[in-house]
Design a protein around this nucleic acid. Structure first.
Lengths: 108, 108
DNA sequence: TTGACAGGCAACCAAATAGTTGCCTATTGT
DNA sequence: ACAATAGGCAACTATTTGGTTGCCTGTCAA
């Protein structure tokens, strides 16, 4: 699964709001997800398409409605594989940062 | 600190590679960070500017060199505040997803 | 069966982004 | 002093992106 698609999908505040909305209440229809967003249904559809490409959202057609479900796995993967890597050596980076700030203070 | 700037900064693979590079060796100059990227120095400068706006990278001028340091705090914050929220209810979302898949199988 | 409602598709538009080139300043080493 | 090196700034271009409008299909309910 392309991690880049997930990062790109998370980059937009509207899309994060859509995830938040599904997080609060899963299985919403397109119309429901449009509420509170000052844009057309088609614009929201496009955002949802990106979320689906990133596998963050999965859908099911039910009658004339389309239900949207949150898939937390890609977020979990990012936390695990990518952020975890930085957390592991966070203290070293912070030490470097401290040294940098001290160096800065030394100047002039 | 604007969380949006951090997400936006992380959305680009070049910028994530720059963070990885600093993660591997902190305090690199602009020229050093340019190595291995098939683009001009100015393009890399622009990427670094976004990383600095997101407070993911901090710099110090040393003579005619500019040293770049990784600041892991914003990444930590995202893991903590944003991803943590999804992790907490991950099992419920996965249960919903399972139900959704079962529902799909029932169709037709 | 027909009107209303949920959603899909495609063309189009404007703004943001990623990149370039050209030229400038500052610092270093000889 | 001066050539080489590190980096900054601004203008320009092309592509991507976020959004719109218009129209179409499918489903439900009266």
């Amino acid at each position: 699964m392309s991690m880049d698609a997930v990062f790109k999908a998370l980059a937009d505040p509207v899309r994060r709001a859509l995830l938040d909305s599904l997080h609060a209440r899963n299985g919403q229809t397109l119309r429901e997800l449009c509420e509170g967003h000052d844009m057309t249904r088609q614009a929201v559809t496009k955002h949802l398409a990106l979320l689906q490409e990133a596998n963050l959202v999965v859908t099911r057609k039910q009658g004339r409605d389309k239900l949207h479900f949150l898939n937390p796995v890609p977020i979990h993967d990012i936390a695990d594989r990518w952020i975890g890597k930085y957390e592991r050596t966070r203290l070293r980076a912070l030490a470097d940062l401290k040294k940098h700030l001290e160096g800065k203070r030394d100047e002039k």
